[in-house]
């Protein structure tokens, strides 16, 4: 088979080429299939099954643990009237869009621009320092900010009220700060790479024409970096939309349900309150949100990816 491939590349007549193409299709399929099958088996099939389970009364333990049944729109009805669910949706949007997409992009961009104006020699050093924030296990990040937010913790000391337990007075703010901290460094690395790809000549030409720094930034640098910024936003979304660890370890969704974003609320309902069916229904709403965002992103990005490959 391989020998045939070798000779057909040398030969220039058309029929052989077409046969060659046919063969490529087959091997492509063979080589893709193990990875493809694993992904289908472990994510698509379970997700499809989850869509069914979301409409059942499945329980973790008890009478409906093994003999569950289809309950129609009961879970959906419960969800629509569940005020905790709606506040959880709001919290998720604040967490993903506020502390994720907006905060990490803005802070990361500010740091990348700073690094660009600083001396080249320190960029690499700063890069390897900030990378730590991203590489650290989320549980370790959660512990650090948990300790910082407690009474007597670093944050309480800094704002001058050492006896305040910030995790019970402003829990959402603290988990958002922790999340922003975790992701900013990574955004900075991505956006710095994007900045380096902006051709210098364009910027210099604008400078000669007398355009100031901010004008050049908004009119030239940022538009050129648009694909990079989009890519970065996708990565942030992927990283935060199903984030469970940080909040679970810091607050477990509390106090009350003040930090229960959808993945945490789903966990509470499914594994603590025994309602696997309802928990799955909550998780499905997360798929809807993720799906809407990914449609938006893929539409924005597909032409650019096509060009790259």
């Amino acid at each position: 088979m391989t020998a045939l491939g070798g000779s057909s590349d040398v030969g220039l007549d058309r029929p052989q080429r077409r046969a060659d193409k046919e063969r490529f299709k087959f091997t492509t399929f063979v080589w893709l299939s193990p990875a493809g099958i694993l992904l289908i088996a472990l994510f698509l099939v379970p997700t499809a099954y989850a869509i069914y389970l979301g409409f059942t009364n499945l329980q973790l333990l008890g009478p409906h643990a093994s003999s569950f049944s289809f309950t129609g729109l009961a879970n959906l009805d419960r969800m629509v009237h569940d005020s905790v669910f709606w506040s959880s949706v709001k919290l998720t949007l604040v967490f993903v869009i506020g502390s994720g997409i907006i905060a990490q992009t803005l802070l990361g961009m500010a740091l990348a621009l700073l690094g660009q104006r600083a001396h080249i020699s320190i960029r690499a050093t700063v890069g390897s320092i900030v990378i730590l924030a991203w590489v650290l296990p989320e549980i370790a990040v959660a512990f650090i900010w948990y300790a910082f937010g407690q009474s007597g913790g670093m944050l309480s000391e800094i704002i001058g009220k050492p006896s305040d337990d910030l995790l019970s007075t402003v829990p959402l703010l603290i988990v958002c700060v922790a999340n922003a901290w975790r992701g900013t460094a990574f955004s900075m690395l991505i956006l710095s790479a994007g900045l380096r790809n902006v051709p210098e000549e364009v910027d210099e030409a604008a400078q000669l024409e007398g355009a100031g720094y901010w004008r050049r930034l908004f009119r030239i640098t940022l538009p050129i970096m648009r694909p990079t910024i989009m890519t970065n936003m996708i990565l942030i979304t992927i990283g935060t939309i199903s984030d469970f660890t940080l909040i679970y370890a810091m607050t477990q969704g509390g106090p009350g349900n003040e930090t229960a974003i959808l993945p945490v609320y789903m966990y509470i309902e499914a594994f603590q309150f025994n309602a696997l069916g309802y928990g799955t229904a909550i998780a499905l709403s997360l798929i809807v949100i993720g799906g809407l965002l990914s449609i938006f992103y893929i539409r924005q990005l597909k032409p650019e990816l096509g060009k790259a490959s």
Binding site: L44, T47, L53, L58, T237, S242, F244, L262, T280, A283
Partner: peptide, 13 residues
């Protein structure tokens, strides 16, 4: 696209 699928949703199955 499988990366965009929050895998929280797949946990119960």
């Amino acid at each position: 696209s499988t990366k965009m699928l929050p895998y929280v949703a797949a946990i119960v199955p």
